[in-house]
Design a protein around this nucleic acid. Structure first.
Lengths: 250, 250
DNA sequence: AGTGTTTTTGCAGGTTTTTGCTGATTCACC
DNA sequence: GGTGAATCAGCAAAAACCTGCAAAAACACT
């Protein structure tokens, strides 16, 4: 492997995890720890990372502020949700993911050498996954919704009928303790219904400001999901009514 | 082999892998490593690649527009092919497209309000098509090849068995007047086979320097395709042996 | 065809870069 | 202050690189 390839990999690792361990990089890149240290020093000298004992961290000098700027507050909320959700993804499990920004970020939170099987109907999630060599990615084919960049319709639902996942990570726009999950697009609602049927566990991800809202097309009752992730703390946030229906709040 | 041929091959290698190793190129091109180094230096001096210890990398100095303008003969070749192919795409027809750079460019040559139905197993083609509101895009689902960013395998072949297209635009790496079309990946070859079965017309797109070459996995005999597009003029280019088998040269 | 010139290519050396290892040293943490 | 992990300095082997050169090929011109 070329030195620059290693550097690029290290930089993306640092970008996604905000820190790296020399030992982990050594295994990932299949070089000695000394080489990793030399790489990190070089990257530190050019100002790309900050070298610390045991590894390296992102350096908050200037250009990081640029990234910060492009994040709306809403996005930091989504980041929090994605981070929590990524911790629910077990190695070598079979995961079903639909579209949306949060699911995209969930993938980014996983280490690049993470191994799992991912079913998805999202073009963006699938494209992101091509950077993860240990992942087995299965794209659910069908009619492409250009707006959402996901496939929907009968083909997707039929494909889903023939698979089974351990966990479904589903991004929803509305969660209501009486109505349950709902969407504003019929095709998407139907696709999500099929996804729930094909998963042992269902984890819904929803920003806090959409809790308690409802939309025209119902996806499922609240007790069909096993966990709900929001960006706020699990306790004392007015989600007790959901918890009382047997849903775990993360 | 001509020096320029080598340069073209090196450029495509770099374009597809984003980097090349001197040792690998030496084997691939069957020349000494010294020659490869000299080639890489030359390409670096003209700004086409960036030389690094052990090989070379793509030079992403600035924007893509710059690349478009000062492009290698190889890529302008692909552009020519894509332009010709885009003229074969009739409005409101049903088109089957596989992956590859040329097909991506074919889409770019179409006006953004073009209306047609496109079946594809390429993530990149599908993503590009989301910018075309009048297009009906159907993504062929299946196992995702991370390297090529296309789906392959049984799922794709089954999906293909249930559809029929007017025209298949297929990018191939080898065309030989005796062997026919061939590929260096078994899955890809099988997928292409299925695509041919599902199309009334098959148009193969192949850069001129791959005409007359062969690869381990055969896709189809030469008379299974109806047209072949290369970047050179249809007449007087040594493709008469192909034309004599009933293939139209565009 | 013949001859001189240029280009290309591989090879023999010597040089530089890279990388892993060893042993000494420093650091984080208890 | 002790201990194990991380680091550092220096070394040696391997890989990559460069220079110069000569043979071969391509070319130009008579």
């Amino acid at each position: 492997m070329l030195k620059e390839e290693r550097h690029n990999i290290i930089l993306t690792e640092i970008k996604t995890h905000r820190r790296v361990y020399s030992t982990a990089l050594s295994k990932l890149l299949d070089v000695s720890e000394d080489t990793v240290r030399r790489d990190l020093h070089e990257l530190a000298r050019t100002g790309h990372v900050r070298k610390v004992h045991g590894g390296a961290m992102v350096n908050n000098n200037g250009n990081h502020l640029l990234e910060q700027k492009s994040f709306s507050p809403e996005d930091t909320g989504r980041m929090r949700i994605a981070e929590k959700a990524s911790q629910c993804v077990l190695p070598n499990s079979v995961i079903l993911m639909d579209g949306g920004l949060i699911n995209l970020k969930v993938v980014e939170f996983l280490p690049t050498d993470f191994a799992a099987t991912i079913f998805t109907n999202s073009l963006q999630v699938a494209t992101k996954l091509t950077d993860y060599p240990q992942m087995e990615t299965i794209l659910l084919g069908g009619r492409l919704s250009h707006l959402h960049r996901i496939t929907t319709g009968m083909d997707v639902i039929q494909s889903l009928a023939e698979i089974h996942a351990d966990l479904c990570l589903m991004e929803v726009t509305s969660v209501h303790d009486e109505v349950g999950l709902s969407e504003n697009d019929k095709d998407i609602a139907n696709t999500k219904k099929a996804m729930i049927r094909s998963s042992s566990q269902v984890t819904a991800m929803c920003t806090y400001d959409h809790i308690g809202t409802m939309q025209p097309f119902r996806v499922c009752p609240i007790n069909a999901v096993h966990s709900i992730i929001t960006e706020s703390e699990p306790k004392g946030n007015g989600l007790e009514s959901l918890a009382s229906k047997g849903v775990r709040i993360l």
